[in-house]
């Protein structure tokens, strides 16, 4: 079976700074992988390379076997299969919730208006926000905005979802509702790659946890192994720092 995401020898430079130093890994279909690591370790850059929001300097990334790093690749089409959720939500403020959830369906997937609205309603139901369908993003709490952003990604019926620190911009009391939605997606078998600082979520939901530091994957493994008895010193030090907070 082809892996959902396959990354081979991925390098990324910002100017002279090498942010990713030859990343190799795979995410299987239906797998939930949490990426942890100190800030500046390259985990967000790695995630953003997967749908080419960030241009890799070298290396290849295969999305369900198709090379998204190929200059000839139809990146726009491949991106419709990869949902992305951002730290700062990035809802479209000039559109109401329904508009946010239908514009790409109509403009990119060429769905009819009625079909797009129906899909939007189903996605909102899944994040439990159907009652906010006519609101503008500014009128929603951070947690609600992030759930709408997840619903927006779902309307494209993606095969996999990328989460870039989805709860880092949220007040502590709003984190739970977003994690609940993500847990639900994981339970439904969605392929997920999650950059996060939520160790509890990683412990409970991830099939695999990957620890990154200074542009390399230091180690990866099942959460109860990596988070409780890591093999590498660097991982141990990081986990101790996080748990001391």
């Amino acid at each position: 079976m082809t892996a959902a995401i396959q990354i081979r020898d991925l390098h990324k430079y910002f100017g002279d700074l090498e942010v990713l130093k030859g990343i190799e890994f795979e995410v299987a279909e239906g797998e939930v992988v949490c990426v942890i690591g100190p800030s500046g370790s390259g985990k967000s850059t790695l995630l953003r390379c997967v749908n080419r929001l960030e241009e890799p300097t070298s290396g290849t990334i295969l999305i369900e076997g198709e090379d998204i790093t190929d200059p000839e690749a139809d990146v726009d089409r491949l991106r419709t299969r990869i949902g992305m959720v951002f730290q700062s939500f990035n809802l479209f403020p000039h559109l109401d919730v329904l508009g946010n959830l239908t514009i790409a369906q109509i403009k990119v997937l060429k769905r009819s208006g009625a079909e797009a609205v129906e899909t939007a309603r189903q996605a909102l139901e899944r994040v439990d926000l159907l009652d906010k369908i006519d609101e503008y993003p500014i009128r929603l709490s951070g947690g609600q905005q992030q759930r709408v952003a997840i619903a927006r990604a779902l309307t494209m019926n993606p095969d996999m979802m990328l989460f870039d620190e989805p709860t880092s911009a949220l007040d502590p009391e709003l984190i739970g509702e977003v994690l609940d939605v993500m847990r639900g997606l994981a339970d439904d078998g969605m392929t997920m790659m999650v950059v996060t600082h939520e160790m509890g979520f990683a412990q409970e939901v991830a099939d695999r946890v990957m620890f990154m530091d200074e542009g390399v994957v230091v180690e990866d493994g099942p959460p109860n192994e990596l988070l409780t008895s890591p093999k590498m010193d660097r991982t141990r030090r990081f986990l101790r720092m996080v748990q001391d907070r």
Binding site: N51, L53, D76, R77, R79, T80, I82, G83, M84, F86, S88, N90, L91, F92, I103, A104, K107, V108, L109, A149, R152, A153, M156
Partner: peptide
């Protein structure tokens, strides 16, 4: 207009000109 707006639009599969005109 924040960069994140274009990124969100592109991540939904919009081309750069579509993201410009619609978002």
């Amino acid at each position: 207009v924040p960069r994140g707006q274009t990124e969100a639009a592109r991540s939904l599969g919009m081309s750069s000109s579509r993201a410009l005109y619609s978002i």
